[in-house]
Structures are given as structure tokens and as C-alpha cells.
Design a binder for these strands. Structure first.
Lengths: 245, 245
DNA sequence: CAGTGGTCTAGACCACCTG
DNA sequence: AGGTGGTCTAGACCACTGC
């Protein structure tokens, strides 16, 4: 006796409401959104679906909810900041801000675990396992912004065609292999850069950089890749949002 | 015709299950937890409550759920890493890892917004508003770890007794004022440190540091404080966990 | 007090994985 | 096919805020 007749699911409704917020189609002059019952009626969903959507929007920093008061759009984050909670990849996130990410140089080769420059924080890799090592230099709006050093487990991915290297790697992996990245551990730190990275950024070797090491797992829990991103510390801010309870 | 008869609510159940995981009381030899129906029965809660709890545990990095497979405990994070998603404050988070946070030096004074060394990323502060400026040098297991520079809005907090400065400031604020911190924006970057911070870390002025700027809001959306934490880049890793969908 | 968001129950259907 | 987690509906009660 049930339905699936709602006009929207969480994902669709999230995108729809982001559009509405960005276009100013929603919220009064103080940024207050309609109440939950009103939004439920407007979009034809139940409270669960609506609240999951609002939770997504909150996680992305678009709104916050105040108990007993209402739901409000949030002032925009600082320009160019990269959300640590984004779920769409750097290219797409920057596109939302009207910025263009390009990959200007790549190199690919195969190495063993023993030869890797770094390893996941926890893993049961054996030292003779084969990895595909990829180094990419990427720009944001044509300014050098980050160097990405990734290792993919050959036992999972097998091979990556050169054409894919200039686009969104995860997108390729998910499309071609039917694997789905389930979750990512990130460790943020500050490290000194090597000469090649320095050349790209226009900094001397030994200059600091903001680093993010991502260990990526399939939804089954299987490690699929680990990478370290070196950001130009002068140009990069990472952003996140934390809700207390 | 309803209830509130469950043995646990989300918060209680979260703490209970963290204990169970840490004590190894839950999960088989491969770290697999009982299925959701089994856990619902065991704890006497419905699926909503259970899944909200599991979501909390996931956000804290204790477990992950694999669609169609099961729920598994995760290997422990790297030692000493600071979770960006923690919701309990540094002191308590480190205590869970058996580490002790101490405040070894403080200074407090009042300044105006115009005199502040930095400002929130978005705010409507006027330049003559009064702020309570607090600088604290803190150690983790007696090793210098971070310097915290906080500004509290005097219009909200009024005053902070010196006794409170050596403990958990947010704890004091919430206890004394009945205000509740609702959410925090964090911006992570890499900045050079000044001489005083360098002295504390045993580094020269101009050395890099990992910085986290937190803008703290009451649950009403009112800005209450903003602070910048300078971490010794050699000793600090920040950790977070991201789930894809 | 009415209205807001926060938590919880009960139960259904959907999507994924394994045997 | 059967079991797992993921999404969704419907409706109730709880807690906070403002008038």
C-alpha cells in the first residue's frame, strides 16, 4: 500500500534546492526558508526525505537549522576554498564556483608497494604488490594549485588508459569497473615539497605545503587507492563544517 | 499510542557502542557486527535510532557499513591524529587515546574588532565591537603542540574568569551561560608562525605551521567566537573521514 | 500558547551481495 | 532466494523559541 510516488528523492532534491538557493528562489530577505511542513508540501516528500536533504545541504554549508527558530541559508564560504566534505570531486566542486581545474602534466608507471613514497595509514598490503603510480600537476584557473601523487592497486584496477589521466580519475574508475568508492580517510598535514613540485609552484624545494593524504576504499571496504595531494600553501584553504549536538 | 520506552537514545547508545567496540565486546573475528535487526533487538530500539547511532559511529571512524554485506569495525586511526569531526573538544578526544592536554600559558585582554589579528570569514562585526582575546599555549603529553588564539564576542560572553582559561573553554561557556554552540566553520591552511609561537615550539619565527581557523556559532546562528589554532607541523596530523553516496 | 526543528516508532520497498 | 544495508512513508512525541 505504498508509493514511491514522490516527485523527488534525496539526491535530486538536494541538487534542486542548491539551485534554488544559488538563484535566490528560496528564502526570505533574512535568508529564512519555509518551515519543514511547508517544504514537504512544496516538494511532495515526507519529513524523512526532506530532513535528509536538509542535512546534506547543511553538510555542504548551504544552510543551517536552528531549533525552534527555523532554517536559514548561510553566507557563502570564502572564495576558492576546497570543501573537505565534498563528495563530487575537485573538478566539479570548483565548477560550481565557476573555476576550471586542468591537469597540465601526468606521469604513470608501475611500482611495488616497497617502492612507494608513502603508504596508507592502515593496510595489509604486502611489499611485492603492484601499484599504478600516477603523478598529476593540476591548475585552478590556470594557476598552479596542486600536485597529486596517487597509487592504485593493480589487483583492483588493472590499468588506466592515458586518456583518462587528464580527467576525473575516480569518475573513470567508477564508470569502467562498476566499482564504487564507498569512503575515504583523509589525513591533513604540512610537509616540505621536493624540487619538481617546487618548480611547478614557483617555490624552492623545501618550501612547505598543505598536504591531504586520501585512502580510498570501495563500498565493500576494500582499499582501492591512496594518494597524497600537495597544495600550494599560499593559495589553498580547506574548508569544513561541523555541527554539534 | 506510543512509547519512549526504548532503553537507549542515540547519544547513550553511541557511547555504549563505542565502549563495546573498544572493549572488543562486539563484532566477530573479522570485525563484523551483528545485522541491523539483531542490533535493534539487542538494544531495544527501532531502526531509525540504530541507524542514526551507526551513522555517528561511522562519522567518528569506528565502523563502516557495506551495502548488502554488513557492518564492520574499522582499524584504528593513526596514533595521535586529531579528528576534525570530533564533537567533544580536544581534551576529551585526546583522553580517549590516553593522552593529556595541558594549558601551560595564557593571556587575556580586551580588544576591538579593528585590533584583531584576524577575523571570521564572514561576519557583520563592526570595527568598534569589543572582543575578549585569549592566547593559550597547550601541550599534549607535555610536548608543545599548539597555540590557540581565540576571540570571544564580549556582547555574548561578557567575561571569562581566569580559572576557566586552563580548562575547556567551551565547556565553561556552555555551563555558565546556557548558550549552546551549534556549529563551527573550520578553515585549514598553512601559515608562518611568529616569534612567540616559535619559541614555544622550538622553531624559528617564519617556520610553517598547520592552522585551523574555527568560527563558532550558537545554535541560533549567532557568532560567539572565532579562533585560530597553530599546530606544530612536525607533530600534528588532522584526520577526517568521508562517506560517498 | 502556537510554531519551529529534533527524536523516535512502525513498517514498507529498493538495491546490493552472497550462495 | 535470502540476507544485508539504503531509502522512503506516515505519524507521534519531545524540546526549544517567540509571542
Amino acid at each position: 500500500m505504498v508509493q514511491r510516488e514522490s516527485k523527488f528523492d534525496i539526491k535530486t532534491l538536494t541538487n534542486r534546492m542548491i539551485q534554488a538557493i544559488q538563484n535566490g528562489e528560496i528564502g526570505d530577505d533574512r535568508g529564512k526558508l519555509p518551515s519543514e511542513p511547508a517544504l514537504m508540501a512544496e516538494y511532495g516528500v515526507t519529513r524523512y526525505t526532506l530532513r535528509e536533504t536538509l542535512a546534506q545541504l547543511g553538510k555542504l554549508g548551504y544552510i543551517f537549522q536552528a531549533h525552534g527558530i527555523g532554517t536559514f541559508v548561510r553566507p557563502h564560504h570564502i572564495d576558492g576554498a576546497i570543501s573537505l566534505q565534498n563528495v563530487v570531486g575537485l573538478t566539479e566542486e570548483m565548477a560550481r564556483q565557476g573555476k576550471v581545474v586542468k591537469t597540465v602534466a601526468v606521469s604513470q608507471r608501475e611500482v611495488t608497494v616497497a617502492e612507494a613514497d608513502f603508504l596508507p595509514d592502515v593496510s595489509n598490503l604486502t611489499s611485492d604488490q603492484v601499484l599504478i603510480s600516477i603523478i598529476r600537476q593540476r591548475t585552478i584557473d590556470d594557476a598552479p594549485a596542486l600536485v597529486e601523487h596517487s597509487y592504485y592497486l593493480k589487483s583492483v584496477i588493472d590499468s588506466i588508459p592515458d586518456e583518462a589521466l587528464y580527467g576525473q580519475l575516480f569518475g573513470y574508475v567508477e564508470q569502467q569497473t562498476k566499482f564504487k568508492v564507498g569512503f575515504i580517510d583523509s589525513v591533513i598535514g604540512c610537509e616540505m615539497i621536493d624540487a619538481a613540485t617546487g618548480d611547478f609552484f614557483g617555490l624552492p624545494a623545501g618550501a612547505p605545503s598543505l598536504t591531504v593524504q586520501d585512502d580510498s576504499y570501495l563500498s565493500s571496504g576494500q582499499l582501492v587507492a591512496f594518494s597524497k595531494l600537495y597544495y600550494d600553501y599560499r593559495a589553498t584553504k580547506l574548508f569544513m563544517f561541523k555541527k554539534m549536538h
